[in-house]
Amino acid sequence: MIPNNRTSCYNGWTKEYQGYLMGEYHAYQGKGYVCMDKNAEALHTSYANLKGALFYNVEGRCCTLKCPPYIEGAELASVVCSNST
């Protein structure tokens, strides 16, 4: 996963999917970040509370990231790539 606000892979790599960097609410003890597919769909077969995480978009903050190229408050893109070598 490349969470560097990228939507393309390095030369020689294959794009599996692209999306947005997401994680738990910032005030909770996070379980890390994931690249959520931009075409993700909800699974409507279970209504049980399994104590899982709710996903929130990760937004850029100029106090911790260099602006530009990042934009204050903008959602961060990500891409998942694979390499067969």
Score class of each variant (00 low, 15 high):
residue 19 G to V: 12
residue 70 Y to N: 09
residue 72 E to Y: 10
residue 80 V to E: 07
residue 74 A to I: 05
residue 49 N to Y: 12
residue 74 A to S: 15
residue 77 A to H: 15
residue 15 K to C: 03
residue 16 E to C: 10
residue 6 R to Q: 11
residue 41 E to P: 00
residue 75 E to Y: 08
residue 21 L to G: 03
residue 15 K to S: 07
residue 41 E to W: 06
residue 20 Y to V: 10
residue 20 Y to D: 11
residue 64 T to D: 05
residue 27 A to M: 14
residue 49 N to K: 09
residue 67 C to A: 11
residue 19 G to Y: 04
residue 67 C to P: 03
residue 13 W to C: 01
residue 7 T to M: 07
residue 8 S to T: 14
residue 74 A to P: 01
residue 84 S to H: 05
residue 3 P to W: 00
residue 16 E to P: 00
residue 40 A to G: 00
residue 28 Y to P: 00
residue 3 P to A: 09
residue 5 N to Q: 03
residue 48 A to P: 00
residue 55 F to P: 02
residue 74 A to K: 15
residue 73 G to S: 06
residue 20 Y to I: 12
residue 17 Y to R: 05
residue 75 E to W: 09
residue 38 K to D: 10
residue 61 R to E: 13
residue 44 H to K: 10
residue 58 V to Q: 12
residue 79 V to L: 04
residue 38 K to N: 07
residue 40 A to Y: 11
residue 25 Y to P: 00
residue 44 H to Y: 11
residue 29 Q to I: 11
residue 17 Y to G: 03
residue 8 S to V: 09
residue 47 Y to V: 05
residue 51 K to E: 08
residue 66 K to G: 01
residue 6 R to C: 02
residue 74 A to D: 14
residue 46 S to A: 06
residue 78 S to F: 02
residue 82 S to T: 14
residue 81 C to F: 02
residue 71 I to R: 11
residue 14 T to D: 07
residue 51 K to S: 12
residue 41 E to C: 04
residue 28 Y to R: 14
residue 66 K to R: 14
residue 52 G to H: 04
residue 56 Y to P: 00
residue 44 H to M: 11
residue 9 C to A: 03
residue 22 M to C: 15
residue 7 T to V: 11
residue 13 W to F: 14
residue 84 S to A: 06
residue 10 Y to L: 06
residue 67 C to D: 04
residue 5 N to T: 04
residue 23 G to D: 09
residue 33 Y to Q: 12
residue 29 Q to N: 10
residue 44 H to A: 08
residue 11 N to Q: 05
residue 6 R to E: 11
residue 71 I to G: 02
residue 70 Y to L: 15
residue 53 A to M: 09
residue 68 P to C: 08
residue 19 G to A: 08
residue 4 N to K: 04
residue 40 A to M: 04
residue 30 G to F: 04
residue 55 F to K: 08
residue 63 C to P: 00
residue 39 N to C: 06
residue 28 Y to D: 15
residue 46 S to C: 10
residue 35 C to Q: 07
residue 77 A to I: 00
residue 16 E to L: 15
residue 48 A to M: 08
residue 76 L to R: 12
residue 15 K to M: 15
residue 77 A to R: 14
residue 32 G to S: 12
residue 36 M to L: 15
residue 64 T to G: 01
residue 71 I to F: 05
residue 71 I to S: 09
residue 84 S to M: 03
residue 63 C to R: 10
residue 39 N to A: 13
residue 84 S to C: 00
residue 7 T to Q: 13
residue 58 V to N: 03
residue 76 L to K: 11
residue 12 G to I: 01
residue 9 C to S: 01
residue 57 N to D: 09
residue 10 Y to Q: 01
residue 33 Y to L: 15
residue 20 Y to T: 13
residue 61 R to P: 00
residue 21 L to A: 12
residue 46 S to N: 14
residue 19 G to Q: 06
residue 62 C to T: 08
residue 35 C to L: 07
residue 69 P to C: 07
residue 80 V to Q: 06
residue 1 M to A: 04
residue 58 V to C: 13
residue 68 P to H: 10
residue 64 T to M: 04
residue 29 Q to K: 12
residue 74 A to R: 15
residue 9 C to M: 01
residue 40 A to Q: 04
residue 50 L to W: 01
residue 6 R to V: 01
